[in-house]
Design a protein around this nucleic acid. Structure first.
Lengths: 207, 207
DNA sequence: GGCAAAGTTGCGGTGACTGTAAAGATGCGG
DNA sequence: CCGCATCTTTACAGTCACCGCAACTTTGCC
């Protein structure tokens, strides 16, 4: 997608990856709180101050992949809008994104483990997901021709979608990454699709 | 519920309220980042170090009411379990809790304004809500007789409930606190109840 | 009054993050 | 190939949240 050709761009990209790599290694080894930004900088062979030119906070190194994934999600949503129902469009887009989790399994599990063991990273993760929610709600509002500020429906759809995503990711992580993310995601979306009123009244949950 | 009689307890409670009051005043006046913990301590007439004996972080002063509300929610949920469907039980409990927002309107709006203007407070708020979600999921899992770790349904129900809560609160705040929180909450729950598949296909969202 | 438990305060330290300004690397026209 | 504009890195000094510790004060109780 976004390619670099100048020497400058290439160098920046290389440094960025060096920082990310060093950070994830250290966080995995000593825990998020067990490694300081200075440690990461030393391991990545840069000055401590430089770290903050690449990432706005220590937490954000772990979540650096979110931005690209949101971009991909938005692109998918803009392509296939509402020939079908909004909810089904959301379902398709989120299922598509979840394919990443499979193809980059090792990386994802690494990051998830840090997220769920370090509260401050978890908090930042939720905050970024809330941004996703706002973006998604805006797009849905566009489909429905209403403005996102005052309408309930776009917010609820976006909120439900992100909940489904969180639930399926939690499941995937709990199972050690053995299950298929797209399948889990689809199942979560379908449960919400059917309506929650009757869920759980008779046993409807087994695999 | 939890009453205090000894002098010690009364003093602690008074100090706690003094800190909370001073903090909210200062944060409202200068913004969350515009007032330091030292400022708050000075205004509340305590030593800076003492602040952290009452609140684990600067953010938590603004969200001090969450704990009590969760307690209330849990109590309500434990009373009226699953004679009806789980979702309807959740609906009832959340609607009941939302009455607080009306009766303490001024306080709530104050807090909400700080939450939505200070990112770090917003992040902490989301984190606490995630804790609610876990708790609620546990209770629902109890109703369904499954264990909460591996089952999807309890997580999804809890996630949907919290999403409904966030959506209705956002609406309430956007409207300047004029609408009725229980009504907004009920409407959000009902939209999810009906199922998301058909939502928005034909116009289903007015008044 | 006097002793134990609990609460307060001051001190010193750590670590994330920021503004600033100097030094270094890169791009580019001549 | 040089020199100038631009961008990047770095060092330095500062702010602020937060923590452990040890002295000091207050409260509970006999």
């Amino acid at each position: 997608m976004s390619e670099s050709n100048s020497l400058r761009e290439r160098k920046k990209e290389r440094t960025r990856r060096a920082i990310e790599r060093a950070a994830l290694d250290l966080f995995e080894e000593r825990g998020f709180d067990g490694a300081t930004v200075d440690d990461v900088a030393a391991a990545a062979d840069i000055a401590p101050r430089t770290f903050f030119h690449y990432f706005p906070s220590k937490e954000d190194v772990v979540l650096a992949d979110y931005a690209g994934r949101l971009e991909q999600l938005v692109a998918t949503l803009r392509e296939g809008p509402a020939d079908e129902s909004p909810w089904r469009a959301l379902r398709a887009a989120f299922v598509a994104v979840s394919a990443d989790y499979e193809s980059q399994r090792a990386q994802m599990l690494r990051r998830f483990r840090i997220i769920s063991s370090a509260p401050s990273v978890g908090a930042r993760s939720l905050q970024l997901q809330a941004d996703w929610e706002t973006t998604v709600a805006g797009i849905v509002a566009g489909w429905l021709g209403t403005d996102s500020e005052l309408q309930i429906v776009p917010r609820l759809l976006a909120g439900a979608a992100l909940s489904a995503m969180r639930a399926s990711m939690a499941l995937w992580l709990a199972g050690g990454g053995k299950a298929s993310p797209p399948e889990l995601m689809a199942r979560c979306f379908d449960l919400l699709d059917a309506g929650l009123g009757e869920v759980g009244v008779s046993a409807t949950s087994s695999p």
